[in-house]
């Protein structure tokens, strides 16, 4: 898959006897905003650290821009911006110094845009990093990442500790780089964030990708929540294929419906004299839960 911007094939990583990644395959195309969701400990950060050559995979092949992530790390990193989930900074440097340092390490950066970001994130760069709260340390990493010129943004739970206002600023920043055709890999366990920003999503569980696709594709494979009111009796629903978690209420019913049984169930409902029908696609959260509990 040479046309993928980020590509992982069969990536395995062991920490001692623990297998953190167990054959991960992931393809992120150019210009995609790609969401990676999974609970803590699923392997999201390990995956990202392998992409950044901070960890070395035990098996498999990973590339960015078609270049090997380990062997050509320095070349790749010139065009990659990274925001870690846990930002550790030098307590005796100020926030401004650290931002400048990262921009200089990158050797590409726009100082005017840096100032703009500092004010948009409402950040005080004159304090020592030792005095910053978690959210403020996160801002340092975000400002440094977005004020450098990159083609790929790798964001590992970038909004942990940010307040809702700053989270909106963050989303704007992501949309801006997306509009410029940049590729974004966003790992998160805040599903609404992924739902708002990402075109495609992979769900990772215990070191494996268990589902990938656009949100629409993933929804297609699952069930809609249906709420129906009808004049006739709905007892017959219980016997139909594709109906789950049926709850009969006076004058109506609530149930989950497998998408591929929609036609037959609709026919039954029409017969029963349906007066109102509400069908809700599953939220990402429900998708997510279905992978973890199902």
């Amino acid at each position: 898959m040479t046309d993928s911007t980020i590509s992982l094939t069969g990536i395995v990583k062991n920490f001692g006897r623990v297998r953190a990644l167990d054959g991960v395959d992931l393809q992120v195309g150019p210009g995609q905003i790609y969401g990676l969701i999974g609970p803590n400990g699923a392997g999201k950060s390990t995956m990202i650290r392998i992409l950044l050559a901070i960890l070395r995979s035990d098996a498999g092949h990973a590339t960015i821009f078609g270049q090997d992530v380990w062997k050509q790390a320095v070349d790749i990193h010139r065009r990659v911006s990274y925001v870690p989930g846990e930002v550790n900074l030098w307590p005796n440097l100020t926030g401004g110094e650290v931002i400048d340092l990262f921009v200089r390490l990158k050797k590409s950066g726009d100082s005017r845009y840096r100032e703009e970001l500092v004010s948009r994130f409402d950040f005080d760069p004159t304090k020592k990093c030792g005095t910053y709260s978690k959210g403020n340390r996160q801002k340092v990493a975000l400002i440094a990442a977005f004020s450098t010129d990159a083609d790929v943004y790798i964001l590992d739970e970038p909004t942990s500790g940010l307040d809702p206002l700053m989270e909106m600023v963050f989303r704007e920043c992501v949309r801006e780089v997306a509009a410029q055709g940049k590729t974004v890999l966003l790992s998160s366990h805040i599903l609404s964030e992924v739902e708002h920003l990402c075109d495609r999503v992979s769900i990772i569980r215990q070191g494996r990708i268990v589902d990938s696709g656009t949100l629409a594709e993933m929804r297609h494979l699952t069930r809609n929540q249906v709420l129906v009111e009808a004049t006739g009796a709905l007892d017959g629903l219980a016997g139909l294929d594709g109906v789950h978690d049926l709850a009969l209420v006076p004058g109506g019913a609530e149930f989950h419906l497998d998408n591929d049984h929609t036609a037959s169930v609709m026919a039954y409902l029409a017969q029963a004299g349906a007066t109102r029908l509400v069908s809700t696609p599953p939220t990402l959260e429900e998708l997510f839960m279905s992978h973890y509990q199902g």
């Binding site: 100020t94 401004g96 110094e97 340092l101 200089r104 390490l105 760069p125």
Partner: peptide, 27 residues
């Protein structure tokens, strides 16, 4: 009282990985 701070921009010497290394061991 904490000394320093108030520096919104990095100085000339805090440049690149070597500048950082020196800064970290300087004290």
């Amino acid at each position: 009282p904490r000394l320093g701070g108030l520096r919104a921009h990095a100085g000339r010497t805090l440049y690149g990985e070597w500048g950082l290394s020196w800064r970290l061991v300087r004290g």
